[in-house]
Simulated scan of single mutants.
Amino acid sequence: MTAPLINQGPVVVTGAAGFIGSHLVDGLLARGTEVIAIDRRSVHNDPVAARNLADALADPSLALHQADLATDELDELITGARTVFHLAAVPGVRDSWAERFPDYASSNVVATQRLLAACERAQVPRLVLASSSSVYGQTSGPSAEGDPTYPMSPYGATKLAAEHLCMAHAARPDTGTSVVALRYFTVYGPRQRSDMAISRVLAAVLSGVPVPLYGDGHQSREFTYVDDIVAATLAAATIADDIDAEIVNVGGGSSVSMLELIAMIGQITGRKVPLAMEAPRAGDVEATRADLTLAHALLGYSPRVELREGIARQLDWMVKQPPSQSVSTPVAEVVSR
C-alpha cells in the first residue's frame, strides 16, 4: 500500500471547526493543500466555529460542509480524498457520565464506523484518527502503545472503541484504507476549549473568579502544544507505505502536576491564581505521561514548544479576544483531558 501524500489531492478534515481541527485546517492550507472541511456546527450561528475558522474561510482552497457524520450521507464528501483526518468527536470526561452519553456514543463510535465504511467505499488511502490518552486509565509510569488500556470514563471508553473499529477495518483483507490512530495527550494553545485546564486557570487569573482544584493538586498531566499536535498529525498522513494499522502516542515531552502548572501560570502572569479546593471527581486519573519512542521512530516527532512558552502564547491569544469570548467562564475546573 502506497502512503498517501497530502499535497497530491484533496484531504478531508472532520471536526474542522474545533480547537485542534481548525489548527490542522490552517496548517494544511498553508501547505497549499485543498481541504474539504466537515463539521456539524455552522459558522453562521456558532460564534466559536466562526472564530476558529475565520482565517481559513477566506482561502479558496477550503470547501466547508455542515454535516453530521452519524446520520448524513458521506460518500460524496470524501470521494477522491487522499487522506481523511478524523478529529470530530464529543470531548470531555465529566459530561460523559451524564445525560449526554448518547451523543458521545453516536459522535465518537457510530460516526467513526460510518466514516470508515465510507472511506473503504471511496478507496481513501489513509485515515488518521484523533484518539486520546484517556484510553490508558490509571498508570504508574509513561504509557506505551502496547500497554493495557483501562479507560476510567465513558468518554475514554468511546475513544478506545473508535480505535478498535479502526483496527478492525484496517485488518480487513479487502480494504484499501490504512489507519494511524494518534493518542493525543492533553492539548493546549490558542483556541483551546474554555472548559480545559489551562484555559480555565488563565481565565481565573484574568477574571479574579476562583478556579476549583479537584483533589490535592498532585495529579499530573502531560500537556502538548497544538502546533506540535498538528505536526504529528500531518506526519501520520505520509508515513511508510507498509503501514496498515498503527497506534502512536503524541505528547509534550514532560508531565507536570496541577500545583506546578498553577505556580507556573502565576509566574507568567505575575498574579496569584485564585483557587477553590474541591473533592476529586469521577474519571480523573492520577497521572498521564507519554512514552514517545514510537512517535520519534515512526513520525520523526519531537515536541518543539516548551510548556512555559506555550502558555505564554495562549495567554497572549486570550487577552486579544473580545470580552464576550475571553474570560466568559465564571467557574472552572483544573483537571483536564
Score class of each variant (00 low, 15 high):
Ala58Gln: 15
Pro210Asn: 00
Ala3Gln: 05
Gly270Pro: 08
Leu160Thr: 10
Ile20Val: 13
Ser107Leu: 14
Arg82Ser: 15
His296Asn: 06
Val327Tyr: 13
Gly156Tyr: 11
Arg172Cys: 07
Asp72Pro: 04
Val13Tyr: 04
Pro303Tyr: 09
Pro322Leu: 13
Leu298Thr: 15
Gln219Ile: 00
Ala332Asp: 00
Thr186Val: 02
Gly215Pro: 03
Phe223His: 14
Thr83Asp: 07
Pro210Leu: 01
Ile268Tyr: 04
Ala118Phe: 07
Ser107Gly: 14
Met167His: 13
Ser326Asn: 13
Asp228Trp: 10
Ala235Gly: 02
Glu120Cys: 07
Tyr155Asn: 07
Ala98Ser: 05
Arg200Trp: 04
Thr149Pro: 01
Val124Leu: 11
Ala203Arg: 05
Ala144Asp: 07
Ser131Ala: 11
Glu73His: 06
Leu87Arg: 00
Val35Asp: 14
Ser302Leu: 12
Thr233Phe: 15
Val43His: 02
Met152Cys: 15
Leu182Pro: 06
Pro330Met: 00
Pro10Phe: 10
Ala297Lys: 14
Arg114Thr: 12
Val48Lys: 09
Gly9Arg: 13
Ser42Met: 10
Leu275Arg: 10
Tyr150Asn: 14
Ala235Gln: 04
Ser254Ala: 14
Leu57Val: 12
Glu222Lys: 03
Ala50Gln: 15
Val35Ala: 09
Arg221Cys: 04
Ala117Thr: 05
Ala287Val: 05
Ile6Glu: 03
His23Met: 06
Lys272Pro: 00
Met1Val: 04
Val25Ala: 08
Leu29Arg: 11
Cys119Tyr: 05
Val211Pro: 02
Gln113Lys: 13
Ala122Arg: 12
Leu64Arg: 03
Arg289Gln: 12
Arg337Pro: 00
Ser178Leu: 11
Gly252Tyr: 02
Val43Cys: 12
Ile262Ala: 02
